[in-house]
Amino acid sequence: MSSQTPSELKYARTDEYLRLEGENATIGISDFAQEQLNDIVFVELPEVGAHVAQGEPFGAVESVKAASDLLMPVGGTVTEVNSQLSDEPELLNTSPYDKGWIVKIKVDDPSEANALMDAAAYIEYCKTR
């Protein structure tokens, strides 16, 4: 495996990453996750304005072999969704950390991010799977 795991991000056990910038955050799925899923064919996005608590589903991704829920790494209100993914779900495969971001949120409580893994811990966690 040669997945990228940028060190400035936090990671959930369910493979979502969190890019925290003050009160705001960008959420997507890790490079490791997109490799596991293989060719992603569909992304289900939430509505802007939706409030989703930590650990609750905010959408789903599908490949031809698997479908998995996307879970909120921290609670918050959706401020923007990456609507480009509707036409080009493959962006999750080709650019998970950049063009393949999924939602932007206004974070309820940034301290919830403490429950997430840092890059080093996530790399170790992926090795066990």
């Binding site: 599908e62 490949s63 479908a67």
Partner: peptide, 12 residues
């Protein structure tokens, strides 16, 4: 659209 079906998604 198979991945949403029971044989893959099971209880979900």
């Amino acid at each position: 659209l198979r991945p949403r079906e029971q044989d893959i998604r099971r209880e979900k």
